[in-house]
Amino acid sequence: MNFNNQVSRIKEKFADLEIKSEESQAGDPYVWVPANKITEVLTFLRDDEELAFDCLSNLTGVDAPPDDLDVVYHMFSYNKQHSLTLKVRVSKSKPDVASVEKLYPTANWQEREAYDLIGVNFTGHSDLRRIMLPDDWVGHPLRKDYQEEEEYRGIDTTRPNLLEM
């Protein structure tokens, strides 16, 4: 099923929601979904016979300066051999997105990574801990406004310039 058919099928089901497709100048098109409805939309995408997205290929967070964060879902169907990109946008002051771990078990770790590096708070996640960085790390490095601490547990995080030594 191509992108336009997929979008119209989702719009048919969620007529009252603001679902907006966007095509970039180059590359792949994607769909915006309201952040508070992502579980409903993904449940539909998984269970609908025509769409049948059985695999969450990639989940990641993207900073959207200055005030927002995006969560991107790359869906894929082994059955129908088609894919679809979904995005939700939340504000940095309240970055809550419902966890989809129960729909796609792979989301457990991928959401932990997005929480760790971008700082999206996945509500309802069973084990939302940092995965890459130490538990006592401060900040979320993949945000554009991230300022690295000068030291971590007494270890310098900067290196002297070798040319000036």
Binding site: S24, Q25, A26, G27, D28, S57, V62
Partner: peptide, 24 residues
Amino acid sequence: KPAVGECYVRTESSRGDMGYYLIS
């Protein structure tokens, strides 16, 4: 300087599907 946009490309690496997601 690629055009503004984004792309998700998957290739079959030795450990399987390796996906690169790039936003320009």
